[in-house]
Design a protein around this nucleic acid. Structure first.
Length: 381
DNA sequence: CTCCCGAAAA
DNA sequence: TTTTCCGGAG
C-alpha cells in the first residue's frame, strides 16, 4: 500500500496517514495531481490504513472468503464461535449479510436467503449470484491493475501499523478520537488535522465530557486552522453533548446514530463505523470513488445505464456486487488512483494500465480548448 | 446550488 | 487573479 504513518499517536492512525508519491513525480503529470506538498486529504485515506495491514476489519469476522472467483466461502470454526453477543454493538454483519455482500439496510436482493443450516461450521457456502447484481466485466482485472499502479508509486514505510498506533488509547477514547478526527479532517490537509488533534489532546480535550465543559471559542482556537474550523467547533460541542447524554461519553455505535451527529454525513459515518467500530456497514464513498466507479462503468442508476448522481447512489450500486472484503480497501485504492491518474479533469488515460477496460478512457478532452460550457453533456464526469 | 474556510494550483 | 480542493448542511 501507499500509506505510511506519519506520526505515531494515540489516536487512530487514519489521522496521520499520508500517501507518498515518491516515484510519481513524472513530468507528464499535471501538477495538480501531484500533491508534492499537499499530500492527500486524510479523510480519504482513513479506511485504507486498516486494509493496508491486512487486518482490515473485524478480527472476529464470521467467516472468510476462500476463493473469490468461485464465489465460495468457508466458515472456520474459531471465527464462527466468536459471534458477538450484541450484534448492534460489536456489530459484525451476520452471515447472511456478508454472504450476500450487501449493506445491512439496503437489502433489495434479499429474496432468497440461505437457510441457516447452510451455515454450519466448516461447510462451504456458495454465493448465489443474483442477476440484478451482476459484477461488471473484468472488474477483477481492473482492480488488480489499479492496485499495481498504486503499489508502484508506493511509499516505503508501511510498517507502522495503524492498529498499533490506534490501540494505545482505551477503546472508548480511541473511538471518540476517531470520530473527532473524522470531523476535523474533511476538507483539511492531514498534517493540519493532526496538529489540531494533538492540541486537543494536549489540553485534555479529546473526550466528550471535556469538550462539553469548555468554551466553544477554546475549541475553535485549538482546532484552527482546519477547514471550516468555526462550524466544526460548534459541531464538536454539539457532538460532545450528544455523546455524553445519549451514549455515556462514547460514540454512537450505529450508522444511524452517527448520522444524527451534526457534521457527520454518510462518508464519515461509514468511515467511523469501519475504523472506529471495526464494523463494515458500507463502503466509504467520497468523490473519487464516486467519479472513478462511474468512469469505469462499475455503477449506474438502478434500472438504467446512467451514471449515478451522488456518492450515496454510488455506494448503493457498488455494494450490490463488490465483494465485501473489498469494501474497505476500495476507498484508499481509488482515492490515490484518482489523485494521480484518474484525475477529476484531464485524466491521464495514457498512464493508466487499465484504460482498455475503461469505457470512459480518452473520452475527455484533455485540452482546455473547450471553455464552452455549453448546455450540458460536456464532460463524462 | 451556495456556504463554510483557507491554502495552493492554475 | 480565479479556481480547485471536495464533506456536510440548508
Amino acid at each position: 500500500m501507499s500509506l505510511i504513518l506519519l506520526r505515531n499517536s494515540i489516536l487512530h492512525p487514519f489521522c496521520f496517514v499520508r500517501i507518498k508519491f515518491k516515484n510519481m513525480s513524472k513530468p507528464t503529470f499535471s501538477s495538480k495531481s501531484l500533491p508534492s506538498k499537499r499530500g492527500i486529504p486524510v479523510s480519504n485515506l482513513n479506511p485504507g490504513c486498516e486494509s493496508s495491514n491486512g487486518v482490515s476489519a473485524p478480527e472476529n469476522r464470521v467467516f472468510v472468503r476462500k476463493k473469490r472467483v468461485k464465489k465460495t466461502v468457508e466458515i472456520t470454526e474459531k471465527e464462527h464461535q466468536t459471534e458477538p453477543h450484541d450484534q448492534k454493538l460489536c456489530g459484525l454483519p451476520d452471515i447472511e449479510e456478508f454472504a450476500y455482500g450487501e449493506a445491512n439496510g439496503s437489502a433489495q436482493s434479499r429474496k432468497s436467503k440461505p437457510t441457516s443450516d447452510m451455515l454450519q461450521v466448516g461447510t462451504e457456502v456458495t454465493f448465489p449470484v443474483s442477476p440484478e447484481a451482476v459484477s461488471p466485466a473484468n472488474w477483477e482485472k481492473v482492480l488488480e491493475g489499479i492496485q499495481k499502479m498504486r503499489s508502484s508509486e508506493d511509499a516505503p514505510v508501511d510498517t507502522m501499523g495503524c492498529e498499533k498506533a490506534g490501540s494505545v488509547l482505551p477503546p472508548k477514547e480511541r473511538r471518540f478520537a476517531v470520530l473527532v478526527s473524522s470531523l476535523l479532517s474533511s476538507q483539511t490537509k492531514d498534517n493540519v488535522t493532526h496538529g489540531a488533534i494533538q492540541r486537543l489532546l494536549q489540553n485534555g480535550l479529546l473526550a466528550a465530557d471535556a469538550i462539553d465543559g469548555v468554551d466553544e471559542a477554546t475549541i475553535k482556537s485549538l482546532i484552527y486552522p482546519v477547514g471550516f474550523y468555526s462550524r466544526k467547533a460548534s459541531n464538536l460541542k454539539k457532538i460532545a453533548k450528544i455523546c455524553l447524554m445519549k451514549y455515556d461519553g462514547d460514540i454512537p455505535s450505529s450508522l444511524e446514530g452517527l448520522l444524527l451527529l451534526p457534521g457527520i454525513g454518510p462518508k464519515m459515518a461509514h468511515l467511523v463505523m469501519n475504523v472506529g467500530w471495526n464494523n463494515v456497514q458500507g463502503i466509504c464513498v467520497d468523490t473519487h470513488v464516486h467519479r472513478i466507479c462511474n468512469r469505469l462503468g462499475w455503477v449506474s442508476r438502478p434500472g438504467s445505464k446512467q451514471k449515478t448522481r451522488s456518492p450515496e447512489e454510488t455506494r448503493e450500486a457498488l455494494q450490490q456486487w463488490l465483494p465485501k472484503e473489498e469494501w474497505v480497501p476500495i476507498n484508499p485504492l481509488l482515492v490515490g488512483f484518482g489523485q494521480t491518474i484518474c484525475t477529476p479533469l484531464r485524466p491521464q488515460c495514457g498512464m493508466c494500465s487499465v484504460s482498455e477496460f475503461c469505457p470512459s478512457a480518452f473520452k475527455e478532452s484533455s485540452s482546455p480548448s473547450s471553455k464552452a460550457k455549453k448546455s450540458g453533456q460536456n464532460n463524462k464526469l
